[in-house]
């Protein structure tokens, strides 16, 4: 219980810290946001009125608290790249679903492929095979996901014609077509990470197989496969869970690039276009959002971790 409380406090502190950083980072940008919102034709009176209305005249801590209060209610103001016509929250809401689907699909792919592969690669152990597995893994880990996305488009889209590049369908229009298209970007995000997880799981399994309890079981005549599944796997998977959580944060980064390749209307493309258009309200909202997701995931992983492995609590 004490552990949970401690982790919860650290969660709140991290979130607060992130929000301060996100807010402060955009305060150093030179320029007058009232002027950029109203245009150069605005009179001094209009500018003053706008500043008053938006609370721009207040001191920095007060403005931070106001921003945070609105942000907690999901209100990030209006987007300047859409001429202050669209609310940031509405803009993000639509895109979020696309990125969330991309993340979930790639994560499922990673787990479904890498865990069997990792176990398989740990079962047989000899010098040539080991080198080969390491090499294949390293090759896939070296491919940037956006280049992989381009190659997938080239091979499966242009040459094999399994899908039409750029033919993204909204999930609420036709969910099956949406999934059929999304599997390709998800593969681009997943493949380099599958290689990472396989490498990690394999070395975790091999390390565990060398421990006394596994060797005892083997010396009593248990077969390698039985030892692995009955005794070792449970323990070897524990560090993999943390690693998978790190991968989840990494998927978010991969998604930013892969969305660009496949022309997906997700958060990543919105972020990039907002940076290019200096639409800081949107940038702030996306950064705060993604950072919070990463922190909250880490919090839950810590909790799951101590539930599976009691040594964490006491140690």
């Amino acid at each position: 219980m004490k552990y949970t409380v401690k982790k919860f406090i650290s969660l709140v502190v991290s979130l607060l810290f992130t929000s301060i950083l996100t807010f402060a980072a955009f305060q150093v940008i030179p320029g007058d946001s009232a002027l950029s919102a109203l245009g150069i034709d605005a009179t001094e009176e209009q500018l003053e009125e706008y500043r008053e209305e938006m609370g721009l005249n207040k001191s920095l801590p007060v403005r931070y608290l106001n921003w945070l209060k609105n942000a907690l209610r999901g209100d990030f103001g209006y987007s300047s790249q859409y001429r202050m016509q669209i609310k940031v929250s509405a803009l993000i809401g639509d895109r979020l679903i696309v990125t969330a689907w991309l993340a979930v699909l790639s994560f499922l792919l990673i787990v479904a492929v890498s865990i069997p592969l990792g176990i398989l690669s740990a079962l047989k152990k000899n010098y040539i095979l080991d080198s080969l597995i390491t090499l294949v893994n390293q090759v896939f880990m070296s491919v940037p996901s956006f280049f992989l996305g381009m190659m997938i488009t080239l091979v499966f889209g242009i040459i094999l014609k399994w899908f039409t590049p750029g033919s993204y369908v909204n999930p609420w229009e036709n969910f099956r077509l949406f999934l059929r298209f999304m599997i390709f970007p998800a593969a681009a995000v997943a493949i380099p990470r599958i290689a990472m997880v396989v490498k990690f799981l394999r070395s975790s399994l091999l390390r565990e197989m060398e421990l006394d309890y596994a060797r005892t079981a083997k010396s009593k005549g248990m077969s390698n496969i039985r030892v692995l599944f009955r005794h070792v796997l449970k323990n070897a998977l524990i560090p993999v869970i943390t690693f998978l959580a790190m991968i989840l944060a990494d998927i978010l980064a991969g998604a930013i690039l892969v969305e660009q390749v496949f022309n997906l209307p997700g958060l990543g493309r919105l972020l990039v276009s907002s940076i290019a258009n200096r639409d800081y309200a949107v940038v702030q909202a996306i950064i705060l959002y993604s950072a919070s997701v990463v922190i909250i995931i880490n919090f839950f992983v810590d909790l799951i971790y101590q539930w599976i492995d009691p040594r964490v609590r006491t140690g």
Binding site: A25, D250, I256, I275, V283, I287
Partner: peptide, 8 residues
């Protein structure tokens, strides 16, 4: 993710 920080 480092790319997110770099984008900020």
């Amino acid at each position: 993710p480092s790319i997110l920080l770099a984008l900020v």
